[in-house]
Computed example of a mutant assay.
Amino acid sequence: MTPWPLRTRKLAASSSSRIYTALFNFQSLLLVILLLVCTCAYVHSMFPAILDRNKDGVRGIFWKCARIGERLSPYISLCCVVMAISMVIN
């Protein structure tokens, strides 16, 4: 029986499929950011108190994303359409 590190190298070398995250694929990263902005804007329109009380700190990122989604909504919707078309083409 081979030691543990050698077994994992054999398994990794024999697998043909690779796993990519959104951090390493630029188009997926843009899609995640776009979905975050759209989701935050929707949540803020339904429940404004949730995001309004967390304007500072790490949770303030969601409030800022909601603000971007509200103020730049024509551009955000245009980006959604462009991303949808690019996903269909690829």
Rank of each mutant, 00 (worst) to 15 (best):
T39E: 09
R71S: 12
A66D: 06
A66V: 06
W4S: 04
S73D: 01
I89A: 14
P48K: 07
L23M: 00
V37D: 00
C79G: 01
G57K: 06
I89F: 12
I85C: 10
S17M: 03
S86F: 05
P48N: 09
L31I: 00
F24C: 13
V32T: 14
L29T: 01
C38I: 13
S28H: 11
A41T: 09
I68W: 02
R67Y: 12
K64F: 00
L29E: 02
Y42S: 13
V32P: 00
Y20H: 14
S86Q: 11
C79F: 07
G60I: 05
V82L: 15
P48H: 05
L11E: 08
R59Q: 01
V32A: 11
I76W: 07
V43H: 05
S86E: 09
Y42W: 14
I85P: 01
W4A: 10
L23T: 07
H44C: 11
F62E: 03
V81L: 15
T21W: 02
N54M: 07
P3A: 13
S15I: 10
C80I: 11
V37N: 04
M46I: 15
P48I: 05
G69E: 09
A84K: 14
Q27A: 13
L51E: 00
P48E: 12
S14C: 00
C40L: 09
V37A: 04
I50E: 03
N90K: 06
G57W: 07
V81H: 11
L6Y: 04
T8V: 12
G69W: 10
A84G: 14
V58R: 15
P48D: 10
Y20W: 10
L6G: 00
L72V: 00
L6E: 12
I19V: 15
M83V: 11
A12I: 10
D56L: 07
N90M: 08
S17P: 00
V32F: 07
L34R: 02
G60D: 02
I85K: 10
D56H: 08
C38H: 04
G69L: 10
I33T: 09
L30I: 01
F24D: 13
Y42R: 13
N25Q: 08
G60F: 02
V37I: 15
L72E: 07
F62V: 05
R59C: 03
C80R: 14
L29M: 04
C38M: 11
T8C: 05
M1H: 03
I68F: 05
I89H: 09
K10L: 15
Y20E: 06
M87Y: 02
R7P: 03
I50Y: 08
S77K: 10
G57P: 06
C80T: 12
T39L: 09
E70F: 03
L51W: 01
A84I: 08
V58F: 15
Y75L: 09
L29Y: 11
R9Q: 13
I50M: 14
L51S: 03
I76V: 15
M1D: 01
C40V: 06
Y75A: 02
A49T: 11
I33Q: 06
R9T: 05
Y75V: 01
A22C: 03
I50G: 06
P5M: 09
S77T: 03
Y75N: 04
I76T: 08
C38N: 12
C65S: 15
N54W: 02
A13G: 14
I76C: 08
R9N: 04
L31C: 02
V43K: 11
K10P: 00
I85S: 10
Q27R: 12
N90S: 08
Y42L: 14
T8F: 05
S45R: 10
